[in-house]
């Protein structure tokens, strides 16, 4: 576990050593505000809540998180530094977890920097701050899910652009798993329980219930298992392909 922390700190520091961190945070904040005020109609709705902010989070993450996750492993493989890392006395799982946690912590920092919006809502009215906190938690979990998927895609290739595209497509499929666009692919032939199972994998369904302020253990478990599964898949992909 000690190594997880060491690797996480190094990763996180390297985000801030390059313009990456600042560009990401800036674009995240600008886009989140644009969506909230122009598309979501923050003022026009006349309600003291942050639904117009959280409603667009999944679509913002869909492109921004893969941009962050694409470098996780593809870059290490491209530069060869993976050979350096893997020949230190470190378990592969520790490295996978450490790098994932660094990216997750980073998105959480970006998310936390949207706090002026929360201050604004509280200035304008009396929102349900418990629900807002729950929605922040849901948003962080959603980012974690996207990152875990992206980490796995990044482990599959040494090309960051391919890693980005794979991650966007995979995240999009997960996002829409509850919608006809994806479900119709299964309805024709698959038994109903399988269709239901696919529908239950939807990021959106699980996120939306948390975003409404309802913290259900099943939703938390869903994100925990999803992240665990894709980090395990990352580890296996690396084990098989790290030296290619």
């Amino acid at each position: 576990m000690r190594n997880v922390g060491i690797i996480m700190r190094r990763e996180l520091a390297s985000y801030f050593a390059t313009p990456l961190a600042y560009v990401f945070i800036l674009i995240f904040l600008v886009l989140a505000s644009l969506f909230t005020f122009y598309v979501g109609g923050f003022y026009e709705r006349g309600q003291a809540d942050m639904e117009s902010f959280f409603g667009f989070q999944p679509w913002l993450y869909l492109f921004l998180v893969p941009a962050l996750s694409m470098r996780l492993w593809a870059e290490e493989r491209k530069s060869g530094s993976i050979e350096l890392l893997m020949t230190q006395p470190v378990r592969l799982w520790d490295a996978v977890l450490g790098k994932f946690l660094a990216a997750w912590l980073f998105t959480t920092i970006a998310l936390a920097l949207t706090f002026p919006l929360w201050v604004t809502v509280n200035y304008l009215g009396k929102p349900d701050n418990g629900a807002i906190l729950a929605a922040y938690l849901g948003s962080a979990l959603l980012a974690g899910g996207f990152l875990a998927v992206g980490s796995c895609m990044s482990a599959l290739t040494r090309n960051q652009v391919i890693a980005f595209i794979l991650a966007v497509v995979a995240c999009f499929a997960f996002l829409l798993a509850g919608f006809p666009m994806v479900l119709d692919l299964f309805r024709g032939w698959a038994p109903l329980p399988l269709v239901d199972a696919v529908a239950s994998l939807s990021f959106l369904a699980h996120f939306e219930s948390i975003a409404k302020g309802v913290i259900d253990v099943r939703d938390l478990l869903y994100f925990a298992m999803l992240i665990g599964f894709f980090l395990l898949a990352t580890t296996i992909a690396l084990e098989l392909r790290k030296a290619d």
Partner: peptide, 16 residues
């Protein structure tokens, strides 16, 4: 690995 010091070919490092 603990007993070993290893310099990979091309000496890759974290450039940033």
């Amino acid at each position: 690995k603990a007993a070993l010091g290893y310099l990979p070919e091309g000496a890759p490092v974290y450039g940033e």
